[in-house]
Design a protein around this nucleic acid. Structure first.
Lengths: 204, 204
DNA sequence: CACCAACATGACCAGCCGGTCAATTTATGT
DNA sequence: ACATAAATTGACCGGCTGGTCATGTTGGTG
């Protein structure tokens, strides 16, 4: 059982890191995070053996939250709007969080805990996609992996103008969703990514 | 008139910087670039007053090349495939060049020369889009600015798996193109970005 | 050839980073 | 109240970065 102050500091650190990462992206300094949490820099390394470890912990939280959203939507919402709300949630997460953008993309997929969280997200996405496909509200050649990769696209596209037009990402999310409709479908030139693709990409 | 060796070194530097930027992205060190060009670090700053200046010079080259491609396509190709080839060229540029990805997005739009190059690219994109719209091969509510912003999306989406599946970006480019078709069109919730949006985003 | 300005050079600077650790403070069980 | 393990602290380290500058070299010119 950890000491009381240690537990409190750990939670303060996670909050601070989450906030700083969301505001300044992946390259915030440990010092900033420590300062925001109101602790010394050394304390950070008492709780997380390296910066990567700290960042991974937060990524896992966020990936898990989004996966949970997806799982809930799958049960309680019709397939069409479930998928739409899932993608909206994913995009929204990134609007408020610059680092999450890099998290889905991330190299840190090498980290085992992050991999696990990514896998859970991938399963949720696949379930939602399968349901939508079966209902005929999404084109037949799109997979859960596609959806995961597309999650951050709208936010990324609108990022250069985010300061001037904070809701612009919605435009591009809808554009992408229109591309996912069955009536828009034209044969795609390249096959969807597979589990192996993700696996080999992680080990590089 | 510059001295002969100065001109040669300048060109060597631009080649080296271009190569290093494409391989390692925006955060390559000046030392690396200098080493690759076979000159001392100080020489870099003889030719470019800061790193930003060097990077901007290369961005301008690339933006200019893509704009030129667009202008040629406008004259010599039918509207549908002109737009498609334009976007393919834009995506391809980023597959081979990690930094260009960040260039279109770039904060360095603040730099006047980069702004000029971006504007030329925007005009080419708008001309191509107008032509395609008029021919009815693209939905009515899409603009040149949309196209510019969408240029890098496919590459970005496929980036996490680029090592395992180097041609995956084509899948997502086609998916986006399908979303641009008139038959896919559903009302978009947010208006297209305007010139002012780009202007205010640049001054931030 | 000689001469000078243009240019190349690399040691050097301040500042930042992630990470370490001996010394110190503090929470907790008795 | 005390003892002790647990946790905090901040000075410190090596390494890297963009950028500077006195010194040395070289190309062009008359």
């Amino acid at each position: 059982m950890p000491r009381a102050d240690a537990a409190r500091n750990r939670s303060l650190l996670i909050d601070a890191a989450s906030a700083e990462l969301s505001e300044h992206g992946l390259d915030v300094s440990i010092s900033r995070i420590a300062a925001r949490a109101g602790v010394a820099k050394g304390t950070v390394f008492n709780h997380f053996s390296s910066k990567e470890e700290l960042v991974s912990a937060i990524f896992c939280e966020q990936l898990g939250a989004l996966a949970a959203t997806g799982e809930t939507l799958l049960e309680h919402t019709d397939p069409r709007s479930a998928l739409q709300q899932f993608m909206t949630a994913g995009a929204e997460l990134q609007v408020n969080d610059r680092s999450f953008c890099e998290a889905v993309t991330a190299t840190s997929r090498a980290h085992p805990a992050v991999r696990a969280a990514s896998d859970r997200l991938a399963q949720a996405a696949e379930a939602l996609t399968a349901s939508a496909r079966q209902a005929g509200v999404v084109r037949a050649d799109v997979t859960g992996h596609d959806i995961v990769l597309l999650l951050g696209a709208a936010t990324w596209i609108a990022a250069p103008l985010a300061a001037a037009r904070s809701d612009l990402w919605r435009r591009y999310l809808h554009l992408i969703l229109d591309g996912l409709r069955p009536e828009a479908a034209h044969e795609l030139p390249v096959a969807a990514p597979t589990n192996e693709d993700f696996a080999t990409a992680a080990t590089r």
